[in-house]
């Protein structure tokens, strides 16, 4: 316990508190002016909104990928499994450039799509979906594997159809892991910078993410302004993650209650 607290302090809490101390150097009015400007608010909305949408997409398709990896044996399964982890390992800028090239109006995919993806908020969602996939797959996979085929067979022998088996047996069992995967993918998406800035186009008020706004403040040597935005993001992220954690703790207590 003592070690945990110490480690958490050095690695997480001290750097984070530095942000708040730095922000405190700013007056209240100034803080409001920077952190809650229209441009900043729209950037938050994009960052959190796109991260939430991307995490939601990943929850659906990540579950599907995890399902296939757990339940089926096929040639090249290990390669597919390794591909899932690729977004973990790939430098995010590489991902960003690759996605931009694909989804740009002149790109392979972008040229085929009826809607514009790159340089639009939609592009941000695409990049964050790419980045977040392994978080959902890797958290759901062990739970699915642990669930065992026999509960599905039990449901079938009791007369349940495939849909009923999925919605009543499988989904509730993997839901906690799915929520964790969602939270991780969401958290990663909110903080993502490298892959997004290439594909987003970074138009102020339209496709500009909050981390980019911070970098811009830094480039203008406005450290207090940058930390003000950072502190706001941090508080919001923490609130969301805490809410998800509490929800899970409540769910666990409910399950363990005698």
């Amino acid at each position: 316990m003592g070690f945990t607290v110490f480690y958490l302090c050095v690695v997480v809490l001290i750097p984070l508190s530095a942000i708040f101390i730095k922000t405190a150097g700013l007056g209240f009015d100034q803080f409001i002016a920077v952190a809650l400007s229209r441009r900043a608010l729209l950037a938050y909305r994009l960052s959190f909104g796109a991260a939430a949408v991307a995490a939601a997409i990943n929850s659906v398709f990540g579950l599907l990928v995890a399902w296939v990896l757990v339940r089926y044996d096929f040639a090249g399964k290990r390669i597919v499994s390794a591909l899932v982890d690729l977004p973990f390992a790939l430098p995010t800028a590489v991902a960003g450039i690759a996605l931009t090239a694909l989804y740009a109006p002149t790109g392979w995919i972008g040229g085929l799509l009826p809607v514009k993806v790159a340089f639009e908020p939609l592009g941000v969602v695409v990049a964050l979906t790419f980045i977040g996939l392994p978080f959902v797959v890797r958290t759901v996979e062990p739970v699915l594997a642990d669930l065992g085929h026999d509960v599905e067979e039990a449901a079938a022998s009791l007369g349940a159809g495939r849909r009923q088996t999925f919605t009543r047996v499988i989904l509730p069992a993997v839901a906690p892991a799915l929520v964790t995967g969602f939270a991780l993918a969401f958290a990663r998406g909110v903080g993502e910078y490298g892959s997004v800035i290439f594909i987003a186009g970074n138009l102020p008020y339209r496709s500009e993410i909050a981390p980019l706004l911070i970098v811009q403040q830094l480039e203008q040597y406005n450290y207090a302004g940058a930390t003000a935005i950072a502190a706001t993001m941090l508080t919001a992220s923490f609130a969301v993650l805490l809410a998800i954690n509490l929800l899970q703790a409540w769910d666990r207590r409910r399950m363990a209650a005698l």
């Binding site: 065992g148 026999d150 509960v151 067979e153 039990a154 449901a155 079938a156 022998s157 009791l158 007369g159 349940a160 159809g161 009543r168 047996v169 509730p172 069992a173 839901a175 399950m255």
Partner: peptide
């Protein structure tokens, strides 16, 4: 398929639905 056979199947490792209460497990069918 199994669901149309009116067969009760009891598995070696019980295969109970862990997220359901005992009553909901029994009522599932």
């Amino acid at each position: 398929p199994a669901r149309d056979r009116r067969v009760g199947f009891v598995f070696q490792n019980y295969a109970l639905f862990r997220h359901m209460r005992v009553a909901d497990n029994i009522a599932f069918g």
